[in-house]
Design a protein around this nucleic acid. Structure first.
Lengths: 330, 330
DNA sequence: CTGAAAGCGCTTACAG
DNA sequence: CTGAAAGCGCTTACAG
């Protein structure tokens, strides 16, 4: 492999000068500069980033760890994060932990040892706290807050309001028996959405109907059946998220219900899938793009030793086809 | 940051010995070994991977470049590739080129300079050929073959047979006016699928009905309208891929057609989305998981200087709900 | 078994 | 403006 030494020799200068030409880090005599440029051309020299990282103690790499690379939510986030990182001159290394605690730990540690400048961590694991503490580089978390603190920032949106909005909207669409499919309580998103639902029930003197459901398609299938058995009067369903709403839709159709005429359906997140399906899904959006951008911003602030800016992201009602849309705005 | 030197000092040994203990690369006196282990514990020492990479001239990183990280096909492939890489002791760095030629080139070059051991490249760009040639590390391509060769291997499936199967199956389901939505001809997948369709038409004395369509949802929406105008008799549609089939479905439903009773629909790829939607999509599958695995295998063979194994992956008919399934097997 | 030394390929004070 | 030297944090012949 051709190294900076080889280039220097050919150009008749020192390696230091080659470095200065490459990086435009000092003025170099124009003639020598040309000789160096030519030598680089000629040899096809590409500077070794590893050597540079070693010296600089920074790789300009941001690591991102997701529990499941196939999940559209993480995916869309990854896209936003990659774009923003790139725009700011960082590269993204994306690791898939596959919901496996061991793998997640290993990935975190590796990224740390690889001189990544920071890590954006999405995790479903509660036991990552310790690992995050051991991490020498800043860690920004998405939608999960560590109990003892220790993360550099936490990006999350206003799930409580999300829960309220979903419930209030279904009511305004005429639903009288609304079931809330509650996500896993270990996630604050699920807890807060449920609180929103709960508060609206209380305010309106409505009875709660709750079914617990994981955040995935498969469990949505099972729990939809359970709803039909347990709450036969149901005319409105708040799904745990869009993925779940999509599976609920399938079960309801198979059982002969019409949507939204018989049962109305609303999801959470506004993943892009939610408008690809037919009918298009009514949902409460999280601003995924903004959140990704903010995550990168928070991380870079932390890298630079600045303090994080705390912010709760706004959710928004997206009226589409699985509800009987009304003109009464809520 | 604590380095191997600090650990050595605390343990009262040389850095070389610490290295040997960490890597189990030589026998070390048991007592010293314990002292080193303790010192590592105590200091929380984590070896710097960058330094190690520099020496070893290998990072055990595989780079993967995708044109669009949100595309489910690339996504599922990425998952398979990540898993297989991890299993074999490599890490994956995933880069999103966003269909931007410049970004793609930069990513390729960066991965090269970062001492990645190899690259798995998915590209829509024709002009990458040169860049691939300049790359000092092995490159495996997915579904694209370079004109001049130069890649270490190319992983692709038998699209010709796929095109035939789709056409023959729609015929066996009773369709008489079948439109083929042909993908961009710059892709061999599109060319070969079209050939399959064409050959079946010729064999059966059928007239071709072709509409050109990009491989994405948006264009599917437009081209579905075009089909209805240009070929009003259509009773079967072979979509360019599953994403396109999903958008075609939406347009047809909006226009009041019933699927599969009025028009039957088949896609390509069998992305996981194809069975999430309702009705579930009939499609011709590519073995995405196997292909990902094979890509990693081919790449690692190349890294080790072995020759690639050439293989065309088998496609398979997946009968689901957008066709009037018959018992006449084809 | 073990340590001193050299080196992986860069970059940056430092001195001139 | 420019080069020799030292160093980033490891690893591995080499010699003992």
């Amino acid at each position: 492999m051709v190294s900076i030494r080889d280039v220097a020799k050919i150009a008749g200068v020192s390696p230091a000068t080659v470095s200065r030409v490459m990086n435009e880090t000092a003025n170099v005599d124009e003639e020598k500069r040309q000789r160096v440029l030519n030598a680089i051309q000629e040899t096809g020299f590409k500077p070794n980033e590893v050597a540079r990282s070693l010296f600089k103690r920074s790789s300009r790499i941001i690591g991102m760890i997701v529990p499941n690379i196939e999940n559209p939510f993480f995916n869309e986030l990854a896209k936003a994060i990659e774009e923003e990182s790139y725009r700011r001159g960082y590269r993204l290394t994306l690791c898939n932990s596959n919901n496996d605690l061991e793998k997640e730990k290993k990935n975190l540690s590796l990224l740390d040892r690889m001189n990544a400048d920071g890590i954006i961590l999405m995790t479903n694991q509660e036991k990552m706290e310790n690992e995050v503490h051991k991490c020498r580089i800043p860690v920004v978390m998405i939608d999960r807050q560590l109990e003892g603190g220790g993360e550099s920032a936490c990006i999350q949106s206003d799930h409580y309001t999300g829960g309220r909005i979903a419930m209030e909207y279904l009511i305004s669409c005429g639903c009288e028996h609304i079931v809330h499919m509650r996500g896993p309580l270990k996630f604050s998103s699920a807890r807060r959405r449920y609180q929103g639902y709960q508060d609206v029930c209380r305010e309106r003197g409505l009875q709660e109907s709750v079914i617990d459901c994981r955040y995935d398609y498969e469990d949505g299938l099972n729990k939809a059946m359970e709803i039909l058995e347990k709450f036969p009067q149901t005319d409105g369903i708040i799904a745990a998220n869009d993925m779940v709403a999509i599976s609920v839709y399938k079960v309801l159709i198979r059982k002969g219900y019409r949507i939204p005429q018989d049962i109305q359906l609303i999801g959470f997140d506004n993943i892009s899938l939610s408008r690809l399906v037919t009918p298009e899904l009514t949902t409460v959006s999280q601003p995924i793009g903004e959140m990704g951008k903010a995550a990168v911003e928070a991380l870079i602030r932390a890298v630079e030793g600045k303090e994080a800016i705390k912010k709760l992201f706004e959710v928004k009602l997206i009226k589409r086809e699985t509800t009987l849309n009304t003109s009464n705005e809520i």
